[in-house]
Write a protein that binds this DNA or RNA. Structure first.
Lengths: 159, 159
DNA sequence: AAAAGATGCTGGACGATCTCGATCGAAATC
DNA sequence: GATTTCGATCGAGATCGTCCAGCATCTTTT
């Protein structure tokens, strides 16, 4: 599906999505038209969903992040989901198995804002909120190389 | 801290980080050297943490995602954190208040892999795992415009 | 097995883009 | 009100991206 060159390109782009075609070409050992074509196809196939920029929430004044688990009251599931989607401070939301229906990440500027936002869903769902104290791992992609990942797992397991 | 032009630039770059300086310049009404300078300063100040690429996990064979809540056994906190950091299938991890010490996102190729990875921390922590069934909101930044966000909140609240 | 077709790469040319230096203007400071 | 500073623009030179023609390799067809 993806060959070594593709993975190589992706690895470089994960670190800096604005790397020039020429630079990419030099690093993987291709010509720039070839790199251009490969990127085009990676986008076309949906492997690359988007080139984007990672913004520090703190720089925007969001001093607090929280993980909110949300259990909509009976019959309120869709309303709650719509509500979450429409509140832009929710920066991520997953629908999961188990008692908690949704697990979402919330960006807020103050505890007051947190309270304000949770109030808006309080009559439609039960929520459990955990304030984020630190981020040991910030968003990163899974291993690009399947084989390497498996091998490493074995090594760690053996030790 | 950030002016309208900066926010405008960021908004465009969130959608496509590879937008050329010229195009950015045209869209915000500046010259390209000015845009270049602004981006440089946004990076320097840490507002822009990185330009990166969003990869579809499915394209890499990760058919399953899970949210794992992790409660290290007494005295095992640091060991567990290190372990999580060293397992690349964890694509995100937050240290939170409350009973669950860590909340992490796990990318796996199969239920078997999930089991294998959780086994590796089973003797050092209790875990609760929720399989992700859908992603109502995929990673997005919080509102770039503070004032707009506040205003909207009021409107929604009033209705 | 030879021919035909498809795929993916290269190199060069041309047009577009970026960067650098010089200069200008507006706002803040004294 | 003069000065300083910051951020903007402009133009020239350098760099980069895209298009195209040609070539090698692999697969398919007969």
């Amino acid at each position: 599906m993806l060959d070594d060159l593709d993975r190589n390109l992706l690895e470089i782009l994960v670190k800096d999505a604005r790397t020039s075609l020429k630079e990419l070409a030099a690093q993987v050992g291709l010509s720039s038209p070839s790199v251009s074509e490969r990127l085009r196809r990676l986008e076309e196939r949906g492997v690359i969903r988007a080139f984007t920029v990672e913004i520090d929430p703190l720089a925007l004044g969001y001093t607090l992040q929280a993980i909110v688990r949300i259990r909509p009251l009976p019959g309120k599931l869709h309303i709650v989901q719509k509500l979450i989607e429409d509140i832009p401070e929710f920066g991520e939301c997953d629908k999961v198995t188990g008692d908690d229906c949704f697990v979402a990440r919330l960006f807020v500027r103050s505890i007051g804002d947190l309270d304000g936002i949770l109030d808006r869903i309080a009559d439609k769902a039960e929520t459990s909120t955990a304030i984020i104290k630190a981020q040991p791992i910030r968003r990163r992609p899974p291993p690009l190389d399947a084989a390497a990942s498996r091998d490493r797992a074995k090594v760690l397991h053996a030790s």
